[in-house]
Design a protein around this nucleic acid. Sequence first.
DNA 1: GTGAAAGCGCTAACAG
DNA 2: CTGTTAGCGCTTTCAC
Lengths: 335, 335
Amino acid sequence: MATIKDIANRAGVAISTVSAVINRTAPTSADVVARVEKAIAETGYAPQRAAQTLRSGRSRLVGLVIPDVTNPHFATVARIVENVCFAAGYMTFIYNTDEDPDHEMKILRMMRTQRVAGLLLISTRSDARHGARLMAEINVPTIFMGSAVAGTPFDLVALDDLSAGRLAAGRLLDLGHRRIFFVAGRKGVSTNDERLEGCRQAFADRGMEFSDSRVVFADFSEERALVEARRALSGEGRATGVVSLSNLMTIGVMRAIRASGLACPSDISVIGVDDFEWADIMNPPPTTIAQPVAEMTRLAITSLLDQIKSGAKPSGRRLRFEPKLVVRASCGPCA
Amino acid sequence: MATIKDIANRAGVAISTVSAVINRTAPTSADVVARVEKAIAETGYAPQRAAQTLRSGRSRLVGLVIPDVTNPHFATVARIVENVCFAAGYMTFIYNTDEDPDHEMKILRMMRTQRVAGLLLISTRSDARHGARLMAEINVPTIFMGSAVAGTPFDLVALDDLSAGRLAAGRLLDLGHRRIFFVAGRKGVSTNDERLEGCRQAFADRGMEFSDSRVVFADFSEERALVEARRALSGEGRATGVVSLSNLMTIGVMRAIRASGLACPSDISVIGVDDFEWADIMNPPPTTIAQPVAEMTRLAITSLLDQIKSGAKPSGRRLRFEPKLVVRASCGPCA
DNA sequence: GTGAAAGCGCTAACAG
DNA sequence: CTGTTAGCGCTTTCAC
C-alpha cells in the first residue's frame, strides 16, 4: 500500500503538504492540489485510519449498541445512524447485546479499545448497579435511546412509555374488555417498567383495579411470549384481551392465538406497543401503539455528533416522544 | 487514558512485558502476569487498537457489505457474521449499499481506509465492468455472498439460484397455472438472472413456452414490486399465478393482491424465493423457496477468516446450496 | 505558501 | 524470562 510519503514524492511536495491537501487543513495552491490529487488517483492511495487516529487522538468512529438488529425496529435505527454518521464523516460500529448485560459490557470494552468518539446505547438494564458498571467503562459522549439508566449523566431519547402503556391498555378497556392479560418485557428495564405503569394508570384513570396476577414477563422475546400467552389463553376465565409491550412479543402472542385455535378479534383482542412495517399483510393486521422511530433516531444521533464536536457535558435531558394509536383489525369490542 | 507505559510503571516491568502478557506472545512468570493484570484492572486500561494496528499492520477488522439490514434476510446474515467474528477476536463493520454500485464503492473505500483484514461482500452488480471497479478497490481476502461478480477471483457462497427459480416456477406449473407473471429483481445481478433462467428452464422442462413479456423488473424493491404487480393484476387475461424472485418483492406482490381486492390463493397464487420468519402470521402464509441462510453465512465467514489467517489465494470456488420448497397456503390449483 | 521533524501507543526484534 | 529501542503512517507545530 502506498503511504503519504509516496504521494509526497510523486507529487514533488512535502508530506505535510499532502496532509494539508487531504484534510483541507491549510491553504494550498491550486497547482499543488492538482499534483497531489493526481498522485493519489494514480496510486489508489487511501490514508490509513489507524495512523490518523493514533496521531490525532480522534477516531471518527461511533458505536451503536442495540438489542438485536434482527428486530426490524432496531434495524431501522441502525440504518438511520449509519446514514447520518456517513454524511458527517464518521464510521459506525453496530453491535447487538441480545439483552445480556455481560455481553453489553464486552461490547463497550471493544468500543473503548477502538476509542470510539461517542456511543448511542440502548442499554440492557436500567438500575443503578448497571449504571455504575456503565460509568466505569464509558468515557466518551453517550446518549441513551429507548431505556434510561439510573446513576448516569447521559441524555435520553425515548418514547413516552407511560403514555404508550396507557394508550394500549386504555384502548382495550374502552372496548369493554375487563379480563386483560399483559405480556411484559423484563423488570428493571425502564421501557418495560414505564409501559407497564402506564397500563396501571389506564385502569386507575377509569377507577378500575389492576391485577398483577395478569402480568407475565417474557424478556422481550417472541418465544417466551408465545409460551406465556398459550398458557394464559387456555382454561376457564381466559383473557378477552392481551396487551403486549413490544413488537416481537406481539408476534409471539399472535402465534399463540393461532396455535390455540382462537379467532382474533372475535374471540380475543390484541394490542401491541411498537408498530409493524408489514402490518397490512399480517393476520390479522394488528392494532398498535407506534413510535416515531426515524425522528427519535435522527435526534439522538445528531445530538451525539453535536456533543462530540462541541465537547459539551451531557445535560441529563430526557427527551420524550409521543406515541400514536394505530387502529387496525386485531381489537374488537368485548363479546 | 492510561497507556501501556503506565501499566509497565505500575507493575514495575518493561512495556514489552506488558505487551507479552496482554497478547500471550511470550512466556511470562505467574507473578509478573498477576502484577500486570492488577495494574490493568486498577487503571481500567484498554490497549489502543489504532496503535496496535499501525504497528502490527493487522487491523483485526472485517467488513460486511450487504444491500440492506432492514431486510430480515440480511439482518440474519449480519448477526451470524458478528458472532463468528467476535469469537475469533475480530470486529465487524456492517454497511448497506441500497443496491447502489456507487455507494458500494464508497463503502469499499472506507473499508480500505480502515485496512479491514477481509471482506464479505454481497455486491450490487455481476458484470465484468463492475468486477473491474471492485478489483481496483479491493486488496484483501474477499468472499462474495449471494451474487457472483465477473472478472474477480474470489470465492462465492450462494444459493443454487437456478434450482430456486426452477422450483418456484415448476410449482405453479404443476398446479396447472399457465398465465404466470414474474416479478424479477434487476438484470445484471446474478441472483436475479439465474433465478429467472431457472424459471425459463421449468417451462422448458415441461415443453412449454416461456414469454418474456410476462416478466417485470422491480429492483428487488417492495414498492416497485407493488406497483408492477398492481398493473399486472388488473385487466383482461390477468395472471393466475405470480412468481416473485426475492422476499421484499413477495411482500409487495401480496400487498398488491390485497389492494386489488383479489383473494389468494383462490383468485391468484403466489410463490416467492426467500422464506419468512413470521410466515405463519402472514395473510396468507406464503409458499416459498427457502435458503439455508445460517449455514451459508457460517461457511462464508469461516472461509474468510481462514483465508485471512492462512493468507491463501482465493480459489474462485463457487459453493452452491440447495433451495427447499416450503409449501404453505398462498398457492392453489389453477381454477 | 511549503518543508523538517517530533511523537501518538504500540509491537517485535534483539540483547542481556 | 525481562528490558531497550526502532519505527508503523500520520498530524501538527514551528521555521522558513
